[in-house]
Write a protein that binds this DNA or RNA. Structure first.
Length: 385
DNA sequence: TCTGGGGTCCTAGGACCC
DNA sequence: TCTGGGGTCCTAGGACCC
């Protein structure tokens, strides 16, 4: 049975929202991203892209390429709100909506013809409704699976609608560079290029056994399927989070032990707060360190039992940090604290070791006085527990 | 031009157990 | 006396996505 998957991609979403909310910015180059000394571009409007500005580019370079642009910090609450309205529109056509990020989603339309009519018409209607109702441009792809639907919406950019039918798949894929395929990034692209493989058509010519000898059995088989546009992964409407994390790149490197420990505690309290908001407990605490030379290390520990105890999590983060090799003269560029092994808080262990009353009290103070209100006193974490 | 922050998934080695 | 063979858990790192 053939499937029909639709992919919606909002064009230059963050920048488009800023232009929507501030008409003076329309038609002008707009760059949204981190404005600090180490910021990068999140989204550039098409007017800014004309100057060579791209996502993930250091903001310093963007400023040089396009100094006349409006440089704006992201307003995630506003983007969430509009992304929610896009999802509402999509949900009116099928319950199977899978958001990929704020600006992208898949929709499984298989079997909805009787309700909504021919799928070409449904795709056209979605493509028309989103800009009409939200004032934001989007690109839409319709194809027999997620892989192809995403490539179709990409082919439709900006602002278009593209349909790929089963019989068109081979011709549609063949000329595309391999790095357009989901899962083929810079490393794999480089390794393929070294072997003379540049386009999807080239990739299709390579034997499965040869691909497996290059990339191992799993990745090899995966690439073989990609080259043929084969993808049976389902549209998954609800996904449980597997991890929660928070990290910060500092405008200037950190060197002082106390400053580093205090930052780790602050991050730990923040993630623990999100954990509790989600009604979850975590069994693994992870610390991420990026040194001034950009080498990145992670350390993690599995706890004897799941917890959402902010002080316990903060203590573990600091212990993980201190466990590491001495850092010599290197400064710390980034710190992160992550939680994994998430389970619903209904699994909370029943003994008294981690007092729920203390946990509640800490959440209470943080929600009333802000996330930083507890950071100083918690340097005595062991006593507080 | 020195390179964000939020994630997911895969691999590989060592410990440990039967 | 040249020393099995899985399976599972844990940690660390890396590729990749938006």
């Amino acid at each position: 049975m053939g499937r029909w998957i639709l992919h919606v991609d909002m064009d230059a979403f963050f920048a488009a929202v800023e232009q929507l909310d501030n008409p003076g910015l329309r038609g002008q180059p707009v760059i949204v991203g981190g404005l600090g000394p180490r910021g990068v571009v999140s989204t550039a409007s098409y007017e800014a892209r004309a100057f060579g500005v791209r996502s993930a580019m250091p903001m310093a370079k963007a400023r040089r390429l396009c100094p006349q642009a409006a440089f704006l910090p992201p307003r995630f609450d506003r983007y969430e709100e509009l992304a929610g309205r896009v999802r509402e529109i999509l949900s009116s056509y099928s319950p199977l909506v899978e958001p990929i990020s704020l600006d992208e989603a898949f929709l499984d339309l298989t079997g909805t013809e009787r309700l909504h009519g021919p799928l070409e018409r449904v795709a056209a209607e979605i493509h028309r409704r989103i800009p009409a109702e939200l004032g934001l441009p989007c690109s839409v792809g319709l194809a027999p699976n997620k892989l192809l639907a995403k490539l179709a919406s990409e082919a439709a950019k900006p602002g278009g609608l593209h349909i790929v039918r089963e019989e068109e798949v081979e011709g549609f894929l063949a000329p595309l560079p391999v790095d357009r395929l989901w899962g083929i990034g810079p490393q794999t692209t480089r390794r393929l290029a070294e072997r003379g493989v540049h386009t999807v058509g080239d990739l299709r010519q390579v034997d499965a056994s040869l691909l497996c000898s290059w990339f191992g059995p799993n990745a090899g088989a995966y690439l073989w399927r990609l080259a043929r546009g084969v993808d049976d992964s389902p549209v998954v409407a609800v996904r449980e989070a597997k991890s929660i994390s928070q990290e910060v790149t500092y405008p200037e490197d950190l060197y002082r032990e106390e400053a580093i420990a205090q930052e780790l505690r602050r991050l730990a309290l923040a993630v623990a707060g999100r954990l509790a908001e989600e009604g979850l407990l975590a069994t693994t605490v992870r610390v991420k360190i990026r040194w001034s030379d950009f080498t990145t290390r992670t350390r993690q520990v599995r706890l004897p039992e799941p917890t959402d105890h902010p002080v316990l999590i903060a203590d573990e983060a600091v212990v993980l940090w201190r466990r590491g090799e001495g850092h010599g003269e290197k400064g710390v560029r980034l710190l992160g604290v992550g939680l994994a092994g998430l389970v619903p808080a209904t699994f909370r262990p029943l003994h008294l070791f981690a007092s729920p009353r203390l946990t509640e009290a800490i959440h209470e103070v943080r929600s009333r006085y802000g996330p930083s209100s507890l950071s100083l006193g918690l340097d005595k974490g062991q006593e507080a527990r």
